[in-house]
Amino acid sequence: MTIPTWFVVAVGLLFNIAAALLTHLKVDHLSIEAGVIEQKRQENRLLIDQVWQQIETLERKKEWLVLYDVQAEKGPLDAHLIVVLEPWIKMDPRGSLSDMLAQLDGKQTVLRNSIDGRYFDNIQYGESYQRLMRDMSMYRNLALFLQIIGLALILARDLRRNE
């Protein structure tokens, strides 16, 4: 008993269709997911850079405050100091230097914790991205295998004609 040629060709076509569907549905879906994850990683990197700049700005404010305290006469805070520090800390005209420095340190700690959280998120995103790339590679290889088998079965029709 021989297998009909049309059946071999049909199976080959089915393998090629399965490969195309696998590529279209699964691999494209994984590519979109990988793109979303990579975009989140980039956004986190940008936010980390921005938060780090804020930490550096606060450090400059602390240095400026110490220099101001050394050079200024002891008395109520002047308007310029209040304007410079008001966006960062709650200003008390009767507040001491150590209170203001403690507020700036607290703000820096909050910002550093934010950076830590985003950094750990990026590590998790990286692991997810690698897993998606591994899965995508596996599905691409499977689709390629199905295409090759399908083409071999279709070409088998031509070999039968020659016999």
Rank of each mutant, 00 (worst) to 15 (best):
F120P: 00
L104D: 03
I89S: 12
N122K: 09
G95R: 09
M91T: 02
N122V: 06
P87A: 04
D99A: 11
G117S: 15
Y119S: 08
Y125A: 01
L101M: 13
I115C: 01
M91C: 12
E86Q: 15
Q108N: 07
G117H: 13
I115N: 06
N113H: 05
Y125C: 04
K90Y: 03
R94S: 04
I123A: 10
N122D: 05
D92M: 04
I115W: 07
D92C: 03
Y125F: 10
L101P: 04
G106Q: 03
Q103D: 10
I89V: 15
R118Y: 09
Q108E: 08
A102R: 14
N113A: 06
K90M: 00
Q108P: 06
Q124K: 14
Y125N: 05
D92P: 08
R112E: 02
K90A: 03
R118M: 15
I89Y: 13
L111A: 12
Y125H: 11
M100W: 13
D92L: 07
K107V: 01
P87T: 03
P87I: 01
Y119P: 00
P93D: 09
N122C: 08
I123P: 03
V110P: 08
G117N: 14
R118C: 02
I123C: 08
E86Y: 12
E86I: 02
Q124E: 12
D121Y: 10
R112P: 00
Y119F: 11
S98I: 05
L101G: 00
E86A: 15
L104G: 03
W88Y: 15
D92Y: 09
S98F: 10
G106S: 08
A102S: 15
M91H: 09
T109W: 03
T109F: 03
D121T: 05
L85C: 01
S98G: 03
D105M: 07
S96G: 12
L111T: 01
F120Q: 15
R112M: 00
I123Y: 10
F120D: 09
I115Q: 10
N122W: 06
L104T: 05
M100F: 14
A102W: 04
P93G: 11
F120G: 02
D99V: 03
G117Y: 13
Y119L: 02
G95A: 08
I89K: 13
Y125V: 00
M100P: 03
V110E: 15
S98C: 02
G95F: 01
D92I: 05
M91R: 08
K107L: 07
L97Q: 13
R94T: 10
E86G: 10
I89A: 11
M100S: 13
G106W: 00
T109S: 10
L97E: 07
W88F: 14
Q108F: 02
F120A: 09
R118S: 10
R94G: 01
A102P: 04
E86C: 06
W88G: 01
D99F: 01
N113R: 12
D99Q: 15
K90Q: 07
F120M: 13
K90L: 02
E86P: 04
G117L: 14
S96H: 11
G106K: 06
L111S: 09
L97K: 15
Q124W: 11
S96I: 06
Q103W: 09
D116I: 13
L85Y: 03
L104K: 12
F120Y: 13
S114G: 12
M91V: 14
K107P: 00
K107S: 00
E86W: 06
N122S: 13
I123R: 14
L101N: 06
N122M: 11
D105I: 02
L104I: 15
